[in-house]
């Protein structure tokens, strides 16, 4: 439905409809990025978008400890008997084997449900031999194609994509938005570069914690399993309007919260993935195969 103000202006317009004078179209908005965190505009064949890159360790100091654990898992898995290996969920076999070079974690922020704009994407992946958090932002709606292009390009060398609820949300949304902007038809770079394995942590979390937790939302797991707590986080439902305000006003203060929110979601996803990987490896390390059948 239309807002009250819109209705009364429409009324004024409608009454004088036969005398229509088109008022000149207003100038476009100037987008200021002054208060976005450090980053830069990236040019692509589809325009430009804003992007920042930061080592994950800067935001999460427990990373080195976990990387060691993952290295041990990988070593163990490499030595395990084929029969025994098969007791690990095969998505996680791939995850452990290809960690960290050929995996990426992904989380999108959009303006709502299906069909709405993807304005921010966070990706965690190896760059310059360390795990980096790359955040892409469309500083207005017209930058979405460029953002999607860059996202797909970053994922080209990736085999395992890790998301939280990405099978039913993030991934189909990316596909729909790419079709909508007709990216595949217009750029050869993008054809046939898709990750082969999609590890959706929502399903695996349910497998492990469904009976122990009140629900399997990301933040619930973050609180109970990862034992971390958010303060001053922007609630997910406020994100779309924060973005529209930002595009309209150019004032990026809320975008900082959104980017932070996105970073936290990715760190928690990473921790969940590594926790499940280590747990599943430890199960075959301690329990003989025969008992599990």
């Amino acid at each position: 439905m239309l807002s009250g103000e819109t209705l009364s202006q429409l009324r004024a317009f409608s009454k004088n409809r036969r005398v229509d004078k088109n008022p000149p179209a207003p100038e476009g908005h100037r987008i200021s990025t002054s208060s976005l965190p450090e980053g830069q505009f990236i040019k692509t064949p589809f325009g430009k978008h804003w992007q920042s890159t930061e080592p994950v360790i800067e935001q999460w100091d427990r990373l080195p400890k976990w990387l060691e654990k993952m290295a041990r898992c990988k070593e163990f898995l490499a030595r395990a008997e084929p029969d025994n290996r098969s007791n690990i969920n095969n998505v996680f076999q791939s995850f452990i084997e290809l960690f960290p070079d050929r995996i990426a974690l992904l989380d999108l922020e959009t303006c709502g449900f299906a069909g709405s704009v993807v304005f921010q994407a966070g990706i965690m992946l190896m760059q310059d031999r360390q795990l980096q958090l790359v955040q892409l932002l469309a500083t207005d709606y017209s930058q979405e194609p460029s953002l999607l292009y860059q996202l797909r390009k970053l994922l080209r060398s990736i085999d395992v994509l890790v998301t939280f609820n990405g099978k039913s949300f993030d991934w189909p949304v990316i596909q729909d938005r790419c079709i909508m902007h007709r990216l595949d038809q217009s750029h050869p770079d993008l054809v046939n570069h898709m990750p082969t394995v999609h590890c959706d942590l929502l399903h695996h979390s349910r497998r492990h914690w469904k009976k122990m937790l009140p629900n399997c939302k990301l933040q619930t797991i973050e609180t109970y399993v990862c034992d971390r707590h958010r303060a001053g986080d922007i609630p997910g439902r406020d994100i779309p309007s924060a973005y529209h305000n930002y595009v309209r006003s150019g004032d990026a203060w809320q975008m900082r919260s959104v980017l932070h929110h996105n970073a936290l979601d990715l760190i928690t996803s990473l921790e969940i993935a590594m926790k499940i990987a280590c747990y599943e490896t430890s199960m075959i390390a301690t329990v003989p195969t025969t008992d599990r059948e």
Binding site: T6, Q9, A25, G28, H29, D140, Y141, S142, V247, R248
Partner: peptide, 8 residues
């Protein structure tokens, strides 16, 4: 009335 935004 901010029901549509104008960009580029």
């Amino acid at each position: 009335n901010h029901e549509l935004n104008h960009v580029a």
